[in-house]
């Protein structure tokens, strides 16, 4: 599975520019879907048919990643930029970005006069090796994702965009393993999550599911001076009860707990005080859906070294398969 993870996490795909991701994922799932479509916003939707006895279930994992967009090129050929999604300047210095054409740029900042201070994005620039504005191969409006190699430290897996390529991996693996389901399942590899869960909103609007399940990362409380949170790496998949954007459907949470217990899948209950997922959009779309989220615990979210645990990934896949393979009484 690490090969698949490496392929997805190292790929380019900031919000709104997910074409390369779509091209990577499509061949992985083609064999396991009854029907594949791409909607107008770019969501990749794989339909796995049920036997007619179940519900319409939308499973969403977002393909996009946080990134930057070039806003200005200086006379000398340095690129000023703005954020795509939650990019914070204290994670940037010395980092690298990749553009759609594979070009790499390095990030630095204007002269630092006070080292105790964190400067805004506007004080940072990207150097793509240009000699001047006219020579610069990058244009205003070009988007870039971060560039960072996938690292395996035993069971700890680190990469730039575990959020949410690891969710995509969970979805792909679950599709492979899900032999039969009573439900009409739509696996949505969604776009534009990082800028406001917009892809999932559009998909939920036209799919109109009864149940929505997002697959996404959640932060953990197991690192020094973390925001207090009862989720740790390696202790199991996380069943979301609440985050800053929504309260998960109580019946769905109970069902997830039940399915996990039945199959002896280690799980943790997640009460997240900041951030939200695609489930938030699915819950309120149209007449509403029972929404929940299977979260993969992840340290250092929105840094270039987002870290997950292989066991948690495996347990998340197992829980999703258990959930989809059996009837849902909500």
């Amino acid at each position: 599975m690490n090969d698949l993870i490496k392929k997805l996490v190292e790929a380019y795909g900031p919000s709104g520019f997910e074409d390369q991701m779509r091209a990577l994922i499509r061949p992985e799932i083609e064999k396991y879907a009854d029907e594949i479509s791409v909607d107008a916003l770019g969501n990749l939707i794989a339909h796995k048919k049920g036997d007619g006895s179940g519900l319409k279930v939308m499973v969403a994992a977002h393909m996009d990643e946080i990134g930057v967009m070039i806003t200005h090129i200086t006379e000398e050929g340095f690129c000023r930029f703005t954020n795509i999604g939650g990019v914070y300047s204290h994670t940037l210095l010395g980092g690298r970005v990749q553009f759609a054409d594979g070009r790499i740029g390095v990030i630095h900042s204007d002269r630092i006069t006070d080292r105790s201070k964190i400067y805004g994005l506007d004080k940072h620039f990207i150097d793509v090796g240009a000699n001047g504005r006219d020579d610069c191969p990058v244009q205003v409006g070009d988007a870039a994702g971060f560039h960072r190699e996938f690292v395996v430290n035993g069971k700890m897996l680190s990469a730039k965009s575990m959020d949410d390529r690891i969710g995509c991996v969970v979805a792909i693996e679950a599709m492979k393993r899900l032999k039969q389901t009573p439900h009409d399942v739509y696996f949505v590899f969604s776009v534009q999550e990082e800028i406001g869960t917009r892809g999932a909103e559009a998909a939920a609007n036209h799919l109109d599911p009864d149940v929505g399940i997002a697959l996404d990362v959640t932060t953990t409380g197991d690192v020094p001076e973390a925001i207090p949170m009862a989720v740790s790496l390696g202790k199991g998949t996380a069943i979301k009860v609440k985050d800053a954007g929504m309260i998960a459907h109580h019946g769905l949470v109970q069902l997830m707990k039940k399915r996990a217990s039945e199959a002896s899948i280690p799980y943790q209950l997640e009460v997240l005080t900041g951030g939200s997922t695609d489930a938030r959009s699915i819950q309120i779309a149209n007449g509403g859906a029972a929404a929940g989220c299977i979260s993969i615990p992840c340290r250092y979210v929105h840094s270039q070294s987002e870290t997950v645990h292989a066991d948690d990934v495996e347990n998340s896949i197992k829980l999703l398969v258990e959930l989809l393979a059996k009837p849902m009484e909500l």
Binding site: G245, M246, I247, R280, Q283, I284, N286, G287, G288
Partner: peptide
């Protein structure tokens, strides 16, 4: 109290 959820969904439905 959290997101006006029921208003959006019932009015739509």
């Amino acid at each position: 109290e959290t997101r006006l959820l029921g208003a959006y969904t019932t009015a739509f439905a």
